[in-house]
Every structure is written in structure tokens, then in C-alpha cells.
């Protein structure tokens, strides 16, 4: 499994770089920080049906940090939700794949882009499944900076109180938000200690290590204490592409054509 995912996520990174519109596309760093997690979810953890995207048996994945859409689009493409031709329109005039994730894309459950919306919506799905005695999971992926939004804390309080055990939150802890590091803007730490008293199970994982992800999802699968699950995923902004890796500005930076070609060449030589 892990070897396959390592190969797969190399391909996903190549696809991601290939569709970048030179001098236009942004949010590359924040897509690369979650791409391994998104790949793990779609290829290992979620029940999804590319030929029947609205299947009632599907698990729900919500990308609340809508600016990381590109990571989800390349994964949905790879999973078979839509064609490479559709993916290739990304960020081009007339495309149906906006830079903030859109429900118009096959496989996408919720349009987001303004932070702090995804988790409350996830609670609604989770409540619906529990009341209907269905075992569909709900996974919501948040950014760390997004936790500044008060709506998330309303939702964290609610989910713990109402024992939404079918809900899994993953926080992409890449340490950077819009203007600077989270440590400088609004320090989240100690995050685990903040979430536990809200009646959640809290886990920590390496968001680029599939073994680490597998361990956490195994623990969640065995959990019987009727609490929702909160995963703090340590990630690196821009992970896997040296031009972006570990750099704050990778949130905004676009590539020119020469840089794009250089990155693709480097990726080719690596594999």
C-alpha cells in the first residue's frame, strides 16, 4: 500500500505542476501540504464511487480550506471522477475548476473558499447519518490558520457534546497562515490540549507519512467511546517541490513557464 501511495503521490505532484497556469495559479504550497493526506483518504480511507459520485453509500469529504482545491482536483482525476482534459482546464478562462473548490466538480461535496464553513456543514452530514442509522463517515480537512474562525469552535463544542463519532477532522498544521506564521499571528499551541476537553479523541500524525496515517485511521476504526475524532497532521507547506517547500510565500507565488518546466524536468529526473 505505502509503496503504491508513494508512487501515486509523485504522479499527483507532477499532475499538479503540469496544470499550473504560468504567472496565474496561486495556492500551490497549501495544496502540496495536503496532497498526501488527500491521496491517502481517497485511495485508502474513504468509500467513494467515481462512477456514481452521489451514491448514498459514499463517505463525505469536505475540503474546508477551499484554497487547497488543486490537491483534491488532481486526486479526483486520478481516482477517475473526471478526465485529464477537464483537469487540464484548471485556472484557465472558461474552466469549471475554480481555484477555490467547487461543488460543480464531480466528487466535490461543498464549495468553500471562505474559511470556517466546512466543519459546521460536516456536522450536518454527520447528524443526518447518525439519525438515519447509516455508517457513512464524514471527513473535514481544515487549515491551521482556519482555526482562528469562531464558527469552528462553535462546531467543535457541538460535535463533542452530541457525540458525532462518525466525524473526523484533519487539521493541516503547516504552520503558516495568510500573513505570517500561525505562531506569530494567533498561536494555536497547545492544540491537542485545547481540543481534548471538548470531548474529542485527538491524534497526531505526520501528514506526509502513509504509515503514520494508517496507524491513526486504524485507531479511529477501533474507537468505541462515541467521540468525534480530531487529527493534527504535521505537514510542510509546498512539500515535495523544492521551489515551494517550507516557504511561506508558496501560498501566493505562481510559477513562470521556465520555472514550471524546470520543476517538471526535476520531477522526471527524480523518478
Amino acid at each position: 500500500m505505502k509503496n503504491n501511495l508513494i508512487h501515486l503521490t509523485k504522479d499527483l505532484r507532477k499532475d499538479l505542476i503540469e496544470v499550473l497556469e504560468p504567472s496565474e495559479s496561486h495556492h500551490v504550497g497549501c495544496s502540496l501540504s495536503i496532497i498526501d493526506i488527500v491521496a491517502y483518504l481517497y485511495f485508502e480511507a474513504l468509500h467513494v464511487f467515481p462512477n456514481e459520485p452521489k451514491s448514498p453509500n459514499r463517505d463525505i469529504f469536505i475540503l474546508s480550506k477551499g484554497h487547497g482545491a488543486l490537491a483534491v482536483y488532481v486526486t479526483l482525476y486520478k481516482k477517475g471522477f473526471f478526465s485529464k482534459e477537464v483537469l487540464a482546464t484548471y485556472d484557465k478562462n472558461g474552466s469549471t475548476l475554480p481555484e477555490h473548490i467547487s461543488k460543480g466538480v464531480p466528487g466535490v461535496e461543498l464549495s468553500t473558499g471562505s474559511l470556517g464553513h466546512g466543519l459546521p456543514v460536516g456536522l450536518g452530514f454527520a447528524t443526518s447519518f447518525i439519525n438515519d442509522k447509516k455508517d457513512n463517515k464524514v471527513v473535514v480537512l481544515l487549515s491551521d490558520g482556519e482555526l482562528d474562525e469562531g464558527s469552528n469552535w462553535e462546531a467543535i463544542m457541538y460535535a463533542g457534546h452530541h457525540h458525532l463519532e462518525n466525524l473526523i477532522v484533519i487539521v493541516d498544521l503547516n504552520g503558516f497562515q495568510g500573513y505570517a506564521s500561525t505562531e506569530k499571528v494567533l498561536d494555536l499551541s497547545p492544540l491537542k490540549e485545547k481540543i481534548v476537553p471538548f470531548n474529542w479523541n485527538v491524534y497526531e500524525m505526520d501528514g506526509h507519512d502513509f504509515k503514520s496515517m494508517e496507524n491513526v485511521f486504524k485507531q479511529i476504526g477501533k474507537s468505541k467511546n462515541k467521540k468525534p475524532h480530531f487529527i493534527i497532521a504535521k505537514t510542510i507547506k509546498g512539500k515535495g517541490i523544492p521551489f515551494f517547500e517550507g516557504k511561506f510565500e508558496s501560498h501566493y507565488k505562481s510559477v513562470d513557464l521556465a520555472t514550471k518546466n524546470k520543476i517538471l524536468l526535476d520531477l522526471k529526473n527524480l523518478s
Binding site: L110, P120, V121, G122, L123, G124, T127, S128
Partner: peptide, 8 residues
């Protein structure tokens, strides 16, 4: 948000 998730 919860209402929206329920409706979806």
C-alpha cells in the same frame, strides 16, 4: 452550517 449539511 449544520442545516446545510442536513440539506445536502
Amino acid at each position: 452550517g449544520i442545516a446545510s449539511g442536513l440539506a445536502l
